[in-house]
Computed example of a mutant assay.
Amino acid sequence: MNNLPESTICTEKKNTAKPLWLTQFMAVYQQLSTDNLALLKTIYHQDIHFVDPMHEIQGLDDLCQYFKGLYENVFSCEFTINHVVVQENEAAIYWCMRYCHPKLNKGNVIMVDGHSHIKSTADKIIYHRDYLDLGEMLYEHLPLLGKVTQWIKARAAK
């Protein structure tokens, strides 16, 4: 027996119909690459507020520039969406990102689990915040800093 309010049950289990803004968001992120960054303008509101562990960005033009900088340095970047919880005009999306960067992990694939909290207005994303382990994504894969980061994590886990 599920004691959660009806609106918090994952739509993938309860109902396969997702709001248009969420369907479009998921579709864009599962195909996003350096060749099609213009797709960001189809899902984000002009006044988007975007937050991740490295930046806080206000506005669609600044967000597009940020993504351009991120994607021009990677060989590949793919997202697999594992779970979605949706309630009215907001959603939590749990994902796994796989990416290859020539200067990280000897160019081999890096996998990072994370989730995003997004909110919509007028079928566009107005708020997007990513939650992820920046050490897992970046610091652990840098030559000297990686060893220090892994040591700190190991010490904190004791």
Results as ranks from 00 to 15, higher is better:
His83Lys: 15
Tyr131Ile: 08
Leu132Phe: 15
Gly107Thr: 06
Val85Arg: 04
Met111Ile: 09
Ala17Ile: 10
Thr149His: 12
Lys103Trp: 11
Thr8Gln: 12
Val112Arg: 05
Ala38Tyr: 13
Thr34Ser: 13
His141Thr: 07
Asp113Gly: 08
Leu37Trp: 00
Ser116Phe: 11
Cys77Ser: 15
Asp62Met: 09
Met54Thr: 10
Leu63Pro: 00
Met1Gly: 11
Leu145Trp: 11
Gln65Ala: 07
Tyr139Phe: 15
Ala27Glu: 09
Asn36Cys: 03
Ala17Gly: 02
Leu4Gly: 00
Arg98Phe: 09
Arg155Pro: 00
Ile57Ser: 02
Gly69Ile: 02
Gly114Ala: 06
Gln65Glu: 10
Leu145His: 05
Lys14Phe: 08
Asn2Asp: 15
Pro5Trp: 05
Leu104His: 04
Ile110Asp: 06
Asp35Pro: 00
Trp95Met: 06
Ala91Ile: 03
Asn108Cys: 10
His117Ala: 00
Tyr131Met: 11
Leu40Ala: 03
Ile9His: 06
Lys153Trp: 05
Ile57Trp: 05
Asp62Leu: 15
His55Gln: 11
Ile110Arg: 04
Trp95Lys: 03
Thr16Cys: 00
Ala27Gln: 13
Asp133Tyr: 07
Thr149Val: 15
Val148Asp: 00
Ser76Glu: 13
Ala91Asp: 03
Ile93Gln: 06
His55Met: 14
Leu22Lys: 01
Tyr131Gln: 07
His45Glu: 12
Tyr66Met: 04
Leu32Cys: 07
Arg129Val: 04
His128Cys: 01
Ser76Tyr: 04
Cys77Pro: 00
Thr8Cys: 02
Trp95Ala: 08
Arg155His: 09
Lys153Tyr: 08
Asp113Asn: 13
Glu90Arg: 11
Cys64Ala: 12
Thr34Glu: 12
Glu6Val: 07
Pro53Leu: 09
Leu104Asp: 09
Asp52Phe: 04
Leu70Lys: 01
Ser7Tyr: 11
Glu136Ser: 12
Glu6Asn: 03
Leu39Asn: 04
Gln46Glu: 15
Glu140Cys: 12
Lys147His: 14
Thr42Trp: 05
Asn82Met: 12
Thr11Leu: 02
